[in-house]
Write a protein that binds this DNA or RNA. Structure first.
Ligand SMILES: [Zn+2]
Ligand SMILES: [Zn+2]
Length: 699
DNA sequence: AGCACGCCGACT
DNA sequence: GTCGGCGTGCTC
């Protein structure tokens, strides 16, 4: 026996994750020493796949004779760092997805499949190709001059910076400061400190692509002279695949010092992060709403804890989860109470629409206020959270209402540029020319009900024919660059009245705006979603902030039918603390997050009954099967299945079931067992699709 | 996911 | 007789 051992080749045994919807990982062998995190080419059944080495084994976990050999090691990239592997293992485990699927869904497309390595025009793979065409492409726009950085901090900011700079280990900091309190300056000072005194890297997350240009400029200005221009990188989903791959490559090779990006950047393969910053941490854009439904903010906190580094969560209206974490002492809260520069306090007033009936969405007090600004040559900003002309179109002689044939939703009336009217579904994209007479009774008395941005624009043009009026919504900014050119017009003073959706509320500064009008503030209040008041509050605060840059102090008019509602008491006083206290109390009474943890089992099918059936069966197996393997069912509540808020979208009907746990880790353990049993349920001939969402935004 | 194997109905 | 439908099962 010993002789045989000496003669046999000694193999290295590896655990490899493959891009498959399977919860298992696969063992392979190699005569070469392969690092954890390497990408390898392996045989799998009749196929050849790329895999990622996640573990080195002493001996294989199955009979060694079944273990196949690694065909090739892909070394065009350094191995994924250990901390990256740990982050992805956590992500897969927490969000209940197969590890291989998760890993491959976050790396750039060309790195996922063998097709970019095998074939005539692949030239040694995507990374090699990238290097060869390096001179041809310059993804970075070189700004002509770099301003010297000389922002002066106030005492609060200085104190915040010094607290952050003194941190030597993991700490989640909630940087809580109103709009204009200078949170960005604090992030940048903290980042500068780390970049100057170490070779560590900074990850800077922002909610939306729209915000990158101005933040990129601040970051570059602030870090000029400390970090090379080309070592500051930007990543978001609208980059070309080539640029994305280039950024990824430079991060993984530790060439990048600073990465500024949207939620996907949380998975960037850093080797040496020193600080994570999450700006506007309450923003729902940090939650991916399809596929792998992760929260970049929550993963950010996990990654920081795992790396034992600080993370800054900045917001004027923190999520109640984060606020609660600060209250119970898990996060360190730093207040920025003062406006940093020449910001003035806004005056927020409510306009009762029961008293002042709106016409085309606009009430008399709002119209008067706009008139006043026009006289003073100041700008007005009108927010309305609905694009199109009117959300409903209906017949006044029968009860016909414009509905989408593919969804349980109304179609929205839109005016197109060539003066045509169209009915459009905002859920599936269905579109038709709007009828001239009622399809049901033939009468021509068809009328739009309610107001969208286009109708408000039309009304304002009628009221103020000499004013320059601009509308900014997803329809008017479809072309690339049109948003920034419209915003330039606004800041150059070429615009008197600006009408827009929520897309205007985030981040953009309007120096000449002294009036903000909010038209349909109520829409969210009575919505089922328990987070709706929280989102409404933060939107109203954010929107109000848009008037704050004006020297004389801005005026904010919020039109509402329910001025007596509690939320407005806090809104007019701009009292987030009060609002949070009030809301957390309600959440606590209702046992909602952050006092419980939730997961949602969603099912999609051709018809609702099949989906509901599947959910009922899933609920039943908790008692029938899960109870034998999981001992803490008393701390888990499974509610009854319900049809989703919008049952049918694009001819697919959806239902869901809520599961609630007292503790986070307990819920995750339960889900893992439950999911194994759900996947064994008969799948109704593959006619259904189901998935579990952990920490859903909406239930 | 893919890909094979396998077992039944309807084609040359 | 075999071509092809997709149900089932496996992949280190
Ligand atoms: Zn009719
Ligand atoms: Zn539709």
């Amino acid at each position: 026996m010993p002789i045989q051992n000496k003669l046999s080749i000694s193999y290295n045994w590896l655990c490899v994750a493959l891009n498959l919807p399977l919860f298992s990982i696969f063992d392979y062998k190699s005569i070469n020493i392969i690092n954890v995190g390497s990408r390898v080419v392996v045989p799998f059944g009749k196929r050849t796949l790329i895999g990622i080495v996640i573990k080195i084994l002493e001996k294989p976990s199955i009979d060694a004779s079944y273990v196949k050999e690694v065909l090739e090691i892909l070394d065009d990239l350094p191995p994924f760092p250990q901390d990256w592997l740990k982050l992805l293992e956590f992500t897969a485990d927490y969000y209940q997805r197969p590890l291989g699927n998760v890993m491959f869904s976050v790396i750039p497309l060309p790195l996922r499949s063998l097709s970019s390595y095998r074939g005539k025009r692949t030239l040694g793979g995507p990374i090699v190709k990238l290097g060869k065409s390096d001179d041809k492409m310059s993804p970075l726009i070189i700004l002509p001059s770099i301003k010297k950085y000389d922002a002066i901090l106030n005492d609060e900011q200085k104190k915040a910076v010094s607290i952050i700079n003194s941190l030597k280990e993991f700490k989640a900091i909630l940087l809580y400061g109103i709009t204009g309190s200078g949170k960005t300056e604090v992030y940048l000072r903290a980042a500068r400190n780390i970049l100057q005194n170490s070779n560590k890297q900074i990850l800077f997350l922002i909610p939306e692509i729209n915000l990158t240009p101005q933040l990129e400029k601040s970051v570059r200005d602030s870090l000029a002279g400390i970090v090379n221009y080309e070592d500051i990188l930007v990543m978001h989903s609208k980059l070309t695949m080539k640029s994305k791959l280039d950024v990824w490559y430079r991060v993984q090779c530790s060439k990048a010092r600073v990465l500024l990006g949207t939620r996907m950047s949380i998975f960037a393969p850093f080797n040496n992060i020193g600080l994570i910053v999450i700006d506007e941490e309450h923003d729902t854009s940090y939650k991916q709403q399809n596929g792998l439904r992760y929260s970049a903010r929550d993963l950010g906190v996990w990654r920081a804890r795992h790396l034992n580094i600080p993370i800054i969560l900045g917001s004027a209206t923190p999520s109640l989860e984060t606020w609660n974490n600060a209250i119970i002492g898990h996060y360190l809260r730093i207040y920025l109470k003062k406006k940093a520069r020449d910001f003035s306090q806004n005056d927020i007033k409510l306009v009762n629409t029961k008293k002042f009936r709106p016409n085309n969405g606009l009430t008399a007090p709002l119209i008067e206020a706009i008139k006043d600004r026009l006289k003073k040559k100041e700008q007005s900003l009108i927010f309305i959270n609905r694009r199109g002309y009117s959300p409903v179109f209906c017949c006044f002689s029968c009860d016909w209402i414009s509905k989408c044939p593919r969804c349980t939703a109304f179609t929205v009336l839109h005016n197109t540029s060539n003066n045509e009217s169209r009915l459009q579904c905002h859920h599936c994209g269905y579109c038709m020319i709007s009828p001239l007479s009622c399809p049901e009774c033939g009468d021509q008395d068809l009328r739009p009900i309610g107001s969208g941005t286009q109708r408000v624009e039309e009304a304002l043009i009628g009221l103020f024919p000499n004013a320059n009026i601009v509308r900014i919504d997803a329809d008017s900014t479809k072309c690339k660059g049109s948003l920034s050119s419209l915003l330039n017009d606004v800041n150059n003073g070429n615009v008197d009245i600006l009408i827009g959706t929520q897309m205007l509320a985030k981040g953009h500064d309007f120096l000449r705006v002294s009036l903000v009008g909010v038209i349909n503030s109520d829409a969210m209040i009575f919505c089922q979603n328990f987070r709706a008041p929280e989102h409404l509050f933060s939107q109203l605060m954010q929107v109000s902030g848009r008037a704050g840059r004006h020297l004389n102090g801005g005026e904010v008019l919020i039109q509402t039918s329910f001025p007596e509602h509690m939320i407005y008491k806090f809104v007019i006083n701009q009292d987030y603390d009060g609002f949070a206290k009030y809301s957390l109390n309600l959440r606590s009474i209702a046992n909602l997050p952050p006092y419980s943890y939730q997961a949602l089992l969603s099912v999609e099918s051709k018809n609702l009954r099949i989906a509901m059936d599947f959910l009922h069966k899933s609920k039943n197996i908790i008692k029938e099967k899960v109870s034998f393997e999981f001992n803490y069912l008393s701390d888990i509540t499974c509610y009854d299945p319900i049809p989703s808020r919008i049952v049918r979208i694009a001819d697919i009907e959806r239902a869901q079931m809520l599961v609630e746990g007292k503790h986070r880790s307990l819920l995750i353990t339960f889900l893992k067992v439950w999911l194994r049993h759900i996947s064994r349920l008969p799948n109704n001939k593959n006619k259904i699709k189901w998935y579990i969402e952990v920490d859903p935004l909406e239930i």
